[in-house]
Design a protein around this nucleic acid. Structure first.
Length: 740
DNA sequence: TCAAAGCCTG
DNA sequence: CAGGCTTTGA
């Protein structure tokens, strides 16, 4: 939507610019930036650390080590060495470590003696893996026998392992003997498994402390260590459990797979190739186990959609495997199949699988639906004022999936009770083109007409529209919301498929800047959309004009709740046929033109001149506000030019004349009659001249020292309003006016 | 108490 | 242009 004229967009851009100005980009190079970022990061992680710490962390050791594989390890090892070796406390750690290892891994031979490759316990292996494999997985895969390794490398590895352990224990100690944030840091470090360098000074201090550790503390930290081991074991157990679950699921999938395979196979191959299936399943099973083993964790983290995809991929894998198997055993006559692995058989299989998956999905959906609809409706305490919207607004293009995603997103907010989508929709008879039934504080489209053309027949349409607001709210609130955050945020999830949020509640209670920005942005967006709607007349029934904007849940701003009965604003109830629930850009334009006649229109007058607008408090206020803004601009210009005149040495009001080619007039005309397609009445020039002279005199008289000096001028000007021509009473006065 | 005006801010 | 806020007057 490239709309560069949009003031909203412009203001957003300026806002962003301001933000950008705020960020100093003093760092020229990427590396410098990285250093800075790292420094920030580390100082955040390490509040007690000195600048030196940062240096240690950021500056990489560029030793000329031969082994590329080991380089990173060595770097880490070096960091540890640098950090810890100079201090005698390290020996204590080593001692403790030895004790600990002997205690927890009874079978483990002395680590120092046997080196890394000793046939240590599983735990040991895993630890070694964790510590060393992050950057070089092959070390984990083949911990045994490194014929190319020289003694130096071995020592390095040993050191690395030992120091990693040491670091962990260090962290535990720190966690015990320090403030919580330090403990946290230790955990962070531990979880990463990546050693973090410690400033020499700090570690010196800490080592000294450790030397003085009383026996009791040593014991307790040994307990801690063993507790950690316990925890690890527990984690491992859980992981195993997960793996088993996954395997079970896979087996089920496979069963399905073979069922289908058998059926399709028996259809296509009646010559007895089935006998191989036993073997296939063995092999495939093995493969599956393997791939499960590999992908267990990722599978577990996948969300359902991804899971299905992954499952499909797996099945495809199996398919290929079995095809390959066929190829091997297939007699030469099957050459065709050899080159086209997805021949009829495969196609059938794929189709069957797809069907199966779809059926499974459908079943799941059904189940969920059943569960949802079976749930008793809970009436939760209504924290929020009744939401005055017909439920039908929530239908999106006849699909509810957006609402679901909306809920999914909503669930990100911990403290919200998600409305049950099915409850919400259960009473919705059909996707509706219900119009926005509440005042948009800003301009909205003019589509009541379109609606009656594209909407459902009057007889069949939503009873909800004729509900009292309360009942409408009640049916909505059967899935009551509890709003922990400003309402505009609630609107976010209700996006149209293009991702543009259509929001129209503009809570006065929006307190957070984000929500404010959100409203603003969507506000300008809505303005754009509304103008878009103005230009594009009828919409196809498939895309009801309000299907997206109908989502503009402008049910907030309950102070606007003095709307008339909902039935009144039904777009189909004759009298309201041309009523609009919001102000359009054309209304704004009209208001601006009216300003040439009246600076202080009463709300009653506005009602008569904007007869095509369904008035409520919001609309009235908005219109009033418009005129207030117009006046503001007007008076600012007047004051500005009055002062300018004084500065220019003008001494007599007689010299102050407003003509159609003077600067002031052009400014005003530009503001209220931008397109210059309206002939500004002469009277306006007179009034403007009077105003200018009033300002001039007041400033000359030095009245502007009084903070309310303008009030006198306002009093004068408000009496100068003239009658607005009757043509402005017509809803389509703009066409009539501008085509003259 | 409320609507409207005005001011300030973004 | 809109929102927040304060003031003002009925």
């Amino acid at each position: 939507m490239p709309d560069h004229d949009s003031t909203g967009l412009l203001s957003r851009q300026t806002k962003r610019r301001r933000v950008d100005i705020g960020v100093k980009r003093t760092v020229g190079t990427a590396s410098a930036f990285f250093a800075k970022a790292s420094a920030t990061f580390f100082s955040a992680m390490n509040p007690q650390g000195s600048e030196q710490d940062v240096e240690y962390s950021v500056v990489q050791h560029a030793d000329g080590e031969k082994s590329n594989v080991l380089r990173k390890l060595l770097k880490r090892a070096n960091s540890y060495e640098d950090a810890m070796m100079p201090f005698p406390g390290a020996t204590i750690i080593s001692q403790l470590l030895k004790n600990n290892m002997n205690k927890n891994c009874g079978t483990e031979p002395s680590f120092q003696a046997s080196g890394l490759s000793s046939a240590g316990s599983e735990i040991h292996q895993e630890d070694a893996c964790i510590n060393s494999s992050r950057d070089s997985p092959q070390e984990c895969l083949s911990p045994f026998g490194r014929p190319t390794m020289n003694q130096y490398d071995m020592d390095r590895l040993c050191d690395e392992h030992l120091r990693a352990k040491r670091a962990r224990v260090e962290n535990i100690i720190r966690g015990m003997s320090h403030s919580p944030n330090v403990a946290l840091r230790g955990n962070e470090n531990d979880r990463d498994g990546a050693p973090r360098s410690i400033s020499p000074r700090e570690s010196y201090r800490e080592n000294r402390r450790k030397q003085k550790l009383p026996q009791q503390q040593q014991q307790s930290f040994q307990e801690l260590v063993s507790a950690r081991k316990e925890q690890k074991r527990e984690e491992r157990r859980q992981l195993k459990q997960q793996l088993e679950d996954m395997q079970k699921q896979l087996r089920q999938l496979q069963e399905k797979f073979y069922q289908i395979y058998d059926s399709t196979d028996s259809e296509n191959n009646e010559d007895g190739n089935l006998s191989e299936d036993g073997m296939h399943s063995e092999i495939i099973d093995a493969r599956a186990q393997d791939s499960m083993g590999r992908s267990n964790n990722e599978m577990f983290d996948l969300d359902p959609g991804q899971f299905i995809d992954r499952a499909r991929a797996l099945i495809r894998e199996h398919q290929i495997a079995s095809d390959n198997h066929h190829k091997k055993d297939a007699p030469p006559k099957d050459k065709d199949n050899l080159h086209h692995p997805f021949q009829p058989e495969g196609k059938h299989l794929a189709e069957a699988l797809k069907q199966e998956l779809n059926a499974a999905m459908a079943q799941v959906v059904d189940t969920v639906v059943k569960v949802f609809s079976a749930k008793p409706i809970r009436q939760l305490p209504q924290v929020f004022p009744p939401l005055q919207i017909p439920q039908a607004r929530f239908a999106i293009n006849g699909e509810h999936h957006n609402f679901h995603t909306a809920n999914q997103r909503l669930q990100c907010f911990g403290d919200v009770i998600i409305p049950n989508p099915l409850d919400t929709f259960s009473n919705v008879p059909m996707p509706s083109s219900t119009d926005q039934t509440e005042a948009l504080p800003l301009v909205v489209r003019k589509n009541s007409n379109d609606q009656s053309a594209s909407g459902p027949p009057p007889g069949s349409h939503h009873p909800s529209l004729h509900q009292s607001p309360l009942s409408a709210a009640a049916s909505f609130s059967s899935s009551s919301f509890r709003h922990p955050f400003p309402l505009p945020l609630m609107a976010y999830p209700f996006q149209n498929p293009l991702g543009a949020p259509f929001i129209s509640f503009q809570g006065k209670d929006s307190s957070s800047p984000e929500s404010l920005d959100l409203t603003r942005e969507t506000t300008s967006l809505r303005t754009k959309m509304s103008s878009h709607h103005m230009n594009h007349h009828p919409c196809s029934p498939a895309h009801p004009p309000s299907s997206t904007e109908g989502l503009s849940l402008s049910f907030i701003k309950s102070e606007c709740g003095d709307m008339q009965d909902m039935s009144d604003i039904s777009p189909y109830s004759g009298s309201a046929l041309y009523m609009q629930e919001g102000l359009s850009p054309n209304h704004l334009k009209k208001a601006k033109l009216m300003f040439f006649y009246t600076r202080y229109p009463s709300s009653n007058m506005l009602k008569t001149y904007f007869s095509d607008v369904k008035f409520n408090r919001c609309i009235t206020s908005q219109l009033i506000k418009w005129f207030s803004n117009f006046r503001e601009f007007y008076y600012i210009q007047m004051e500005k030019y009055a002062r300018q005149a004084i500065n220019d040495g003008i001494t007599s009001t007689e010299e102050l004349c407003i003509t159609r080619d003077c600067e002031l007039y052009r400014a005003l005309n530009m503001h209220y009659n931008k397109a210059n397609d309206f002939e500004v009445p002469e009277r306006f020039l007179e009034v403007a001249q009077i105003t200018l002279r009033e300002f001039f005199n007041a400033i000359i008289a030095g009245k502007d020292v009084d903070p309310s000096w303008k009030n006198a001028i306002y009093k004068v000007i408000c009496k100068l309003d003239s009658e607005v021509p009757d043509i402005f009473r017509s809803p389509n006065c703009l066409q009539e006016l501008l085509h003259e």
